[in-house]
Amino acid sequence: MDTACKECGALVAQPAVDREHQYYCPRCDAMLYRSGQEFHYIILMALSSIILFFPAILLPILTLNIAGMEQSTTLVEAVWSFFGDGYTFIAVLVLLSGIIIPFLMLTLILMILIPIHYGVSPRKVATLFNLYEHLTEWSMGEVYLISILVAIIKLQKMAMLIIGEGFFLFIAFLITMYITMVWFNPHDIWHQQKSDDD
C-alpha cells in the first residue's frame, strides 16, 4: 500500500513497471497504471510527428472553386479569419488548442525524455510533467480534424472542393502524435528513478 488512486483516494499497492498490463483501481475502476513504451521509441515517434507538423499546417487543406474563382485554406489561415473578423479571443483559443498545444505536447515529451535518457534526474524536468498533464485536456487536434470533415460536407453543395495535401499530412501528424502520447507514460520515469535509488 504505497500509493493512492488519483480519482477516488483509495489506498492501493504501487504497480510495478510493466510493458504489457494495465491496472485499475479496485474501488472506482480508474486506470492506475497504463503500460508505456521504451523511451527511445517514444523519442523517435515524437520526432517523426514533429517533422509532419509543419507541412501539415502550412500546406492547403481544402481548395474551393466557385464559378471559376479559387480559394485555398491552410490550418493556420483558418485561425487568421477570426482575427480578421475582430474575434481575438476565439482566434487565440483556436490557435492554441488546435495547433500550438498539440505541437507543444510533443516538444514537452522530448524535453522530458531526452534529458532523462542521458541520465538527468527526473526531478529537474518535473515542472514540464506538470505542464504536460495540464495541457492534455486542451489539445484539440482531433476536434480540428473532424471539423474539417464537417466543413467539407457543409461546403460541398456550394462549390467544387479539392482536398489538399495538408489534410492528409494533418491526419498523419495526429496519428503519430497519438501513438507518441499513448506510449508516453510519466509514471514509468518516477518508478525507474525509485529503483535507481534503492
Binding site: 485554406t73 479569419s81 476565439i90 483556436v94 484539440m140 476536434v143 471539423s147 466543413a151 461546403l155 456550394m158
Partner: peptide, 17 residues
C-alpha cells in the same frame, strides 16, 4: 473538448468562403 467542434467549423467556413 468536443463541444469546440462548431467553433473550428466556423473558423474554416469563414476562411474558405
Amino acid at each position: 473538448k468536443w463541444s469546440m467542434l462548431d467553433i473550428f467549423v466556423v473558423a474554416l467556413m469563414v476562411a474558405m468562403v
